[in-house]
């Protein structure tokens, strides 16, 4: 009996409202991105240029990642530096 009641209540609100809400949030975000030309690409290029002034880098080893949260977003910059760099630093000092 309680199962039937539960099913009855559930049927009244299907999954469509969830679909609608997910879409609205996603599209608000995607439309924002569309107007600004590849922010991550630009950041990556500029970070690469600055660091390259001091360290010889493999451009493939520079990873820029953005993670969007509800209240804050994080920008993660992952740069792999070859070990030969430390040796060069030691020589320079």
């Amino acid at each position: 009996m309680s199962m039937n009641l539960f099913n009855l209540l559930r049927r009244r609100t299907g999954s469509a409202p969830v679909a609608r809400e997910r879409l609205q949030i996603l599209l608000a975000h995607e439309r924002g991105l569309r107007s600004q030309p590849d922010l991550l690409g630009i950041l990556r290029e500029e970070i690469l240029a600055v660091v390259s002034r001091h360290i010889v880098l493999d451009p493939e080893k520079v990873i820029v990642r953005m993670d969007r949260g509800d209240s804050v977003s994080t920008l993660e910059v992952d740069i792999e530096i070859p070990n030969s760099f430390e040796k060069r630093l030691a020589v320079a000092s």
């Binding site: 299907g14 999954s15 469509a16 879409l23 609205q24």
Partner: peptide, 17 residues
């Protein structure tokens, strides 16, 4: 039928989005 039962996005949802 499925839209009326809330199983499928309805016309207003799509047009609003």
């Amino acid at each position: 039928g499925r839209a009326a039962r809330g199983e499928m996005l309805n016309i207003d949802d799509i047009l609003e989005i």
